[in-house]
C-alpha cells in the first residue's frame, strides 16, 4: 500500500447556536464529533450516511473551507490547519471541491471562459497567452464543446453545468478532490455519464477522491473504501466489497438492507429501525446508535465504543466486536 495522501485525525466541528436577547451561545450542533480516516493516493474513499450526519462538514473541513473546532488534517504529512498565506494558496491548488448543486455553484454573471480561467489567473499558474489554450484543454477534458466557452451558466443543463464545475476543479491540477454529492442533483442517465467521467479523470490525472454520497450503489461503484457515518461519528470503514458483503456494525447492516437491489426475486430481510435519527444538538450518551440498535447491550448507553480495527482494513465502532476491552 502507498502512503496516505490525506489523513484526518479526530476531527471535531461544532456549530454554535446563538439565541436569547443577548445572542449568547445556547447550544451546539455536534456536526462532526471525532472522525478519523486516511485516504491513500489515487484511491477513492466513499463517505455515506443519512442527511445531516456531517458528511459534507467532513468534506469542507478536509480542504479547509471551514476550520474545524479541533482535530488534525494532514496532507502529504503536513498539517493543513497550520497553513497560512502562501502555503494555504498552494494547498488550494492541490485540493479542490465539486459541490452538490451545479446550478448554484457557477456565478451566473460570468462566462464559462472566465469561470474556468479564474483559478489560473488567481494563482498565476500560466502566462496570459497560454491561459486560453489551457481552458480549451479543460473543456475538452470534460467533453464539452469549445463553443460553450462564450456562454453563460444559465444556458446549460444540469449535467453540463456539473462538467463545468469539474473542469474548474481540474484547472489547478489538483491531487485531491472532494466530491460532495456530485450526482444527486442530476437525473439517472446523466449521473452515469458524470461518474464515468470522474473515473476516467481519476485514472488520467492520478486523482484522489473523497466521494460524499447517500447513494450506496454509486458509492460501491466508484469507491475503493467506504466509510459510514452516523450523527457525527464514523461507525464503520472497510473496503467497498467487504463492507457490502460483510457489514459488521448494526447500523451499516440496517443501511445496506434498505438499499434497493435490482432483482425482484431476490430474498432479503429488511431491518427496520425504530425511532428517529437523534438530534445532533443533543446526541445520545454512549454509542449514538444505541436508542435504535436492535442488538443493544447494557454498556452501550454508558460509554462510547472505541473505533478499532477488527480485521486488516476493516474498522468498526461497536461493543459487539470489542467486548474484551470493555
Amino acid at each position: 500500500m502507498t502512503e496516505p495522501l490525506i489523513q484526518v485525525k479526530n476531527l471535531v466541528k461544532y456549530f454554535p447556536i446563538y439565541g436569547g436577547i443577548l445572542l449568547k451561545e445556547i447550544g451546539r450542533v455536534h456536526a462532526v464529533d471525532g472522525v478519523s480516516f486516511e485516504i491513500n493516493k489515487q484511491t477513492t474513499l466513499g463517505l455515506v450516511g443519512e442527511s445531516g450526519c456531517g458528511k459534507t462538514t467532513v468534506g469542507r473541513c478536509t480542504i479547509r473551507l471551514i476550520d474545524p473546532t479541533s482535530g488534525e488534517v494532514y496532507y502529504n504529512g503536513e498539517n493543513v490547519l497550520k497553513f497560512r498565506g502562501k502555503q494555504l494558496n498552494q494547498f488550494r491548488c492541490n485540493a479542490q471541491i465539486v459541490f452538490q448543486n451545479p446550478h448554484a455553484s457557477l456565478n451566473p454573471r460570468m462566462k464559462i471562459k472566465d469561470i474556468l480561467s479564474e483559478p489560473i489567473r488567481i494563482h498565476k499558474l500560466l502566462p496570459k497567452n497560454e491561459i486560453e489554450k489551457r481552458v480549451l484543454q479543460l473543456i475538452n477534458e470534460v467533453a464539452l464543446e469549445p463553443s460553450h466557452l462564450l456562454r453563460y451558466p444559465h444556458e446549460f443543463s444540469g449535467g453540463q453545468k456539473q462538467r463545468i464545475v469539474i473542469a474548474r476543479a481540474l484547472a489547478l491540477n489538483p491531487e485531491f478532490i472532494v466530491l460532495d454529492e456530485p450526482t444527486s442533483a442530476l437525473d439517472v442517465s446523466v449521473q452515469a455519464q458524470i461518474l464515468n467521467l470522474l473515473m476516467d479523470l481519476q485514472r488520467k490525472f492520478k486523482l484522489t477522491y473523497l466521494f460524499i454520497t447517500h447513494n450506496l450503489n454509486i458509492c460501491r461503484h466508484i469507491s475503493d473504501e467506504i466509510a459510514v457515518m452516523y450523527v457525527g461519528k464514523m461507525v464503520e470503514r472497510a473496503s467497498a466489497d467487504e463492507l457490502f458483503d460483510e457489514p459488521l456494525h448494526p447500523y451499516t447492516q440496517a443501511l445496506l438492507s434498505a438499499n434497493p437491489v435490482p432483482d425482484p426475486e431476490a430474498k432479503r430481510s429488511k431491518i427496520i429501525l425504530k425511532g428517529e435519527v437523534p438530534s445532533p444538538i443533543n446526541p445520545p450518551s454512549g454509542c449514538r446508535f444505541h436508542p435504535r440498535c436492535p442488538k443493544r447491550m447494557d454498556i452501550c448507553d454508558k460509554s462510547e465504543p472505541p473505533y478499532i480495527q477488527i480485521k486488516p482494513g476493516h474498522h468498526v465502532a461497536c461493543y459487539l466486536y470489542s467486548k474484551n476491552e470493555s
Partner: peptide, 21 residues
C-alpha cells in the same frame, strides 16, 4: 450561494470575491 464558497475553494482573495462575485 454555493458559488461564493466555490470561489473561496479556488483560493480567490476577498477583494476579488467582493468585486467579481
Amino acid at each position: 450561494e454555493t458559488y461564493i464558497e466555490a470561489a473561496r475553494a479556488i483560493g480567490a482573495p476577498g477583494v476579488r470575491i467582493i468585486f467579481k462575485h
